[in-house]
């Protein structure tokens, strides 16, 4: 579904990603680990096409099409979606408005579907509030997910969906992520794929990831079993974890 070749990205005058090689297949769920400031959000933003992340080299192929030069909304319409780590407050635009906007793009989906999504994430009391205005950390995560439910992208990226989410809500969050990634279907039948950033990996206790990458200083290192990598990071730290690759 997604292939990234030799990707180097600048933000302002700073290189945030270099020579990144990555691929995610249909039906696959990939995790992304890395320390603060290592370039995780930058990678997701670059795939999404957020202006400001300037591609210096390399390209991004989505469903066989080179999307490196496409605008953010064009990518969204092609089926790329993202739950933001820190979305902005949009005054005057209510969560409900956003839901309708996302649904409208898909055509056909009605008011009932909007309500069903809102209920799934227990956001009834937020639907008429300006988006993200005064939302708590956990509420923001749920609000991001509810928008993705409405949007229903094929390639779904989650930037720390478990950070700041309480022990009860994490079930809700996981359930929705599993739904978005069609986890109920067997891998071969899925038409979706996902990329999940997580620090502690809590979400991976509920959402099965097939593979994981580790990123440090803008370089993407090992691709491997998520549990093993997480265990390595816990014991040896990020440096220790990637040392095996550095030696190669």
């Amino acid at each position: 579904m997604l292939e990234i070749h030799d990707l180097t990205v600048m933000v302002q005058n700073r290189r945030v990603l270099q020579n990144v090689e990555m691929h995610v297949s249909n039906g696959e769920t990939v995790a992304l680990f890395g320390p603060n400031g290592s370039g995780k959000t930058s990678l997701l933003s670059t795939i999404m096409g957020v202006p400001g992340y300037r591609v210096e080299r390399g390209n991004i192929i989505f469903k066989g099409e080179d999307i490196t030069g496409l605008a953010i909304d064009e990518r969204a319409r092609l089926g790329i979606g993202m739950a933001f780590q820190r979305p902005p407050v949009v005054r005057g635009v209510k969560l409900m408005d956003m839901m309708r906007i996302c649904m409208d793009r898909r055509g056909g989906a009605g008011e009932i579907d909007v309500r069903r999504c809102i209920e799934k994430l227990n956001l009834g009391e937020f639907q008429d509030r300006d988006i993200n205005l005064g939302f708590s950390g956990g509420e923001i995560k749920r609000s991001e997910l509810v928008q993705l439910l409405a949007q229903d992208p094929d390639f779904v990226m989650f930037d720390e969906p478990d950070s700041g989410v309480d022990l009860v809500s994490i079930h809700l969050v996981a359930k929705v992520i599993n739904e978005l990634l069609e986890k109920e279907k067997s891998a071969g039948r899925r038409t979706k794929a996902g990329l999940i950033i997580s620090h502690a990996g809590h979400i991976l206790d509920y959402v099965n990831a097939d593979r994981a990458y580790v990123i440090m200083g803008g370089n993407l290192y090992c691709s491997g079993n998520p549990r093993d990598l997480l265990e390595d990071i816990k014991v040896k730290g990020y440096e220790g974890c990637i040392s095996c690759q550095r030696q190669n």
Binding site: A71, A76, M82, F84, P88, V93, M98, I101, C102, R105
Partner: peptide
């Protein structure tokens, strides 16, 4: 804010 809404299509 514009980019955020654009990311939704």
């Amino acid at each position: 804010e514009i980019h955020y809404l654009m990311a939704r299509g």
